[in-house]
Design a protein around this nucleic acid. Structure first.
Lengths: 205, 205
DNA sequence: ACATGGTTTGACCAGATGGTATAACATGTT
DNA sequence: AACATGTTATACCATCTGGTCAAACCATGT
């Protein structure tokens, strides 16, 4: 651990790593302390309890992911570009933060109150609202098929994210080696984009 | 717990429930014992250790899910029917076994050796092989677009399964109530089917 | 009645774990 | 120097938890 940065931040980084790796129950305060090059007592000095540290950790992780997802989609983009950027954004983000994202879906299912608490303090519409609105307009204009915006968004995210999250299962179910599977993932972006476009566009080339 | 059935089976049911609810580390042998109306000592009498019980549990759960997924798709079905049955099958299965399926994706990520061990003793091709082969044929025949069978399968599963698994996150991100969200899920089957058909079919009506 | 073998359990243990008390250490202020 | 304040670490504690043990229980056969 980089001892130049402050202890508090070092602990946060260590805690995120350990929580993501072991889960809440599996995480040991001692391991977090060691990993932050600090004594367990100091750990409790900064963050009173494990639960408190957990909440702070989750909040930090979440907002960093949200910051990341806030897509660079502009009003001027064509619908093809919008869909392309969405797929690229979700795939990149979930690839980069795989363990952390996974951690969310799992640990926060057990501690739903924590999730609620955090989501409550966030402007959720900021990161879906714009896109849903755009889909609604395209649908009204007739450039895309008659599909509920929410369903379209879920389809896109599902196809983008699912294989990344389900990797350990899929790899074995499909009998693919590590290399074969990452090759498969690497090739998927354009495939998903074309799949979506083929499904939703009214006027095909 | 039903005390008519044998202790061993009662324990298995209790263990599955508790493991799914709390995760491996969060699960307490005492809770499993209580939930099976048996003493903790008896629990250890039947299953020597927590780890052993965990492995047996996972194996049982897995094979039951596999049994469920082994689809009723026949050679005679049209490609439309095949896709329809796939979506229906996956959605139904993951809806019914939501917690358990979730448990897999999470807990088995931490204990990959257990997953490997189990998958090794299973004929995985049985539940994907037939479908992949079918997709390959349709692709060659030109009835569907030029897409890798594996990618098509992943797309279908992703769209079907993702919203069910990501419910706690999605519900809040989209600002939907419990009722609104289950309504959304209930309506998705035909939407996904039509989406896939629109994307893959060469000759559209 | 007795023996036998599987089953069940209360009591217990060793180790781990979250958390704390206490004192030492550092740094700056008066 | 003396004091105040913030930080760090050693030693410790109460509790929990997986696991064990010896004794009791129960069914069946002889």
């Amino acid at each position: 651990m980089d001892s130049k940065i402050g202890a508090e931040e070092r602990i946060m980084q260590a805690a995120i790593a350990v929580f993501c790796l072991r889960g809440y129950d599996g995480a040991r305060m001692q391991e977090i302390a060691d990993s932050a090059d600090i004594s367990k007592a100091s750990l409790h000095y900064y963050f009173r309890s494990k639960e408190n540290l957990f909440r702070k950790t989750v909040r930090e992780l979440f907002s960093s992911i949200i910051r990341n997802i806030r897509s660079r989609i502009s009003e001027d983009d064509s619908i093809e570009e919008v869909i392309g950027k969405l797929v690229n954004g979700y795939v990149d983000m979930f690839t980069a933060h795989r363990r952390q994202a996974f951690y969310f879906l799992t640990e926060l299912m057990k501690h739903e109150e924590v999730l609620s608490e955090i989501m409550a303090g966030l402007d959720t519409s900021a990161f879906t609202g714009g896109i849903l609105e755009r889909f609604r307009k395209e649908r009204e204009a007739g450039t895309i098929i008659d599909i509920e915006p929410v369903d379209l968004l879920i389809n896109i995210i599902g196809m983008s994210v699912f294989p990344i999250m389900a990797e350990p299962m899929l790899k074995r179910a499909l009998n693919l080696s590590e290399a074969e599977f990452s090759n498969l993932l690497a090739k998927r972006k354009p495939i998903v984009i074309n799949f979506v476009l083929a499904a939703v566009l009214r006027d095909k080339p």
